[in-house]
Amino acid sequence: MKSEQTLKAPLTINWAINNSCNFLCRHCYSRSDTAEELAGDVLCAAMKRVAAAGVLSVNFGGGEPLLRRDLLDIASCAAGCGMRVSMNSNGYLLDKEKAVALKNAGFSKVGISIDSHEALAHDRFRGVAGSHERAVNALAWLREAGIKTSISTVICTFNHEQIDSLIEFALANKVSQLNFHNFKCSGLGLANKDELDLTPLQWQEFYRKALRAKEQVKELDISLDDPIIASLGLKSGSSMVKGSVCGKLSLNIKSNGDITPCGFIPVVIGNIVHDELKEVWANSPVLEKLRHKTPTGKCASCSDYGECLGGCSARALAMTGDFNSPDPHCWIP
């Protein structure tokens, strides 16, 4: 019904409430981030303003949220303002009591990062022995507590051919959603890119198979958050915006309150403590550019540009310094 109109505020915010982590993931983008953390009361005040601006949901991530001692208070504050609260966690610190406490604090959904159905492969990638088992247990505790669960898997060289096993694993653990995250070359991910990132043709192959699986497996919501799949003919219709969601539906907030378009675009456009969210959302020149990208290089003659809009702006920026460049994952010759 409309597409060009800019919303009054983001629908959802990915909020890094901390950067500390008990894991050593090789693809992580935030452990290399040393930004300070906002105090609980400052965070809560900021969340109240964000909710009043119209934001509907917040997702805590960045570091490991469970390492923040006041996580429950922060979540209650966000939920108390009427926002839907979720987080991404590695699940290591979860047990039955914690899961119930999360539910009581207002969490409606928790995503657990699991990179392989095989425990050893996951543990090696995450850098912590026994982490797979604890992640799987976490899913069960959460479900029992009445929290929706999802599995988040970062697709990279060691798991891209395991789609079917990953789906089976997700079904066996009764999660409602399986998120295949595309590998982002920023933060530590950039340092480990050569070893972890797929080639464009491998991405094409992966997405072809993943889209087919998404069509076939009805019991599970398989989510592929990558604009680059537009050229494979996925109907986006009115369900989502075209191209990348950053600056159109969502924003990212770092642990020190700095606002960036997305967790993988290290361009600060304001600070949630000092600036007015709506003002940043409406007037940031960076967001303006992200919303109105200009096709360059092969994108200029690509018939899918209207849907793809050059793919992931973060990857383009990380590799070329310009988010108008074609997504480095793009397989179109």
Binding site: M1, K2, Q5, L7, Q177, S223, D225, S239, M240
Partner: peptide, 18 residues
């Protein structure tokens, strides 16, 4: 008719309503 005045949002699906 073509002015979206509200939006619904659920699990990654978004709908705009006039």
């Amino acid at each position: 008719e073509d002015i979206g005045t509200s939006l619904l949002f659920s699990d990654g699906m978004m709908v705009t309503l006039n």
